[in-house]
Design a binder for these strands. Sequence first.
DNA 1: GAATAGATTGTCT
DNA 2: GACAATCTATTCT
Length: 196
Amino acid sequence: MTPLPRSFYARPVLQVAREALGKVLVVVAPDGSLCAGRIVETEAYRGPEDLAAHSRRGAKTARNRVMWGPAGFAYVFFVYGQHWHVNLVTGAAGEPHAVLIRALEPLVGLAAMSERRGRAATDPNLCNGPGKLCRALGIGPEHRDLDLCGPVLFVSDGPRLPATRSPRIGVDYAGEWAERKWRFFHRASRWVSRAR
DNA sequence: GAATAGATTGTCT
DNA sequence: GACAATCTATTCT
């Protein structure tokens, strides 16, 4: 399990979102234990023009400023009063683009994930949502802005999976931008958040 | 299986 | 003060 190079992230966000399917998200806890899962669902966010993105209209804030930096860093944020989400910052510095990780197939650290989620390791609901997978892997505020080329939070290589596209989830407020098929998922996987 | 309501707080206007 | 890139339990059918 080694981190992918920064060059993986420093490419157009739609390409990274598609090619992330099959790669493995890895989190190393302070005690050295490991949790990891195969990425089976992603979404691309491409501000400032994309009105679904937190970087829409160039609104740079303390929360989202990492998106304007170089590729290969983690954008971690909190929503709905209870859920953390994790993104991969992509593209060139100055482009506030990111890939949201929406679902994982659990691979390593199943006991820890099961305990944090209060569900069996075989439960398809373990990691099939952006909030669920962060809870399962223990991703939270301590992972904000981390370098994905570092030792704590990173993506490891894996065979690419075929991608099916659909509109993004939960961004109906974004008007015509919500209709763009910027969600990518592995249709055959039982671990995606929804079949279509 | 589908639809709905309620939870709950960091963040921004 | 309003809202949010969601989840869960509950209540139907």
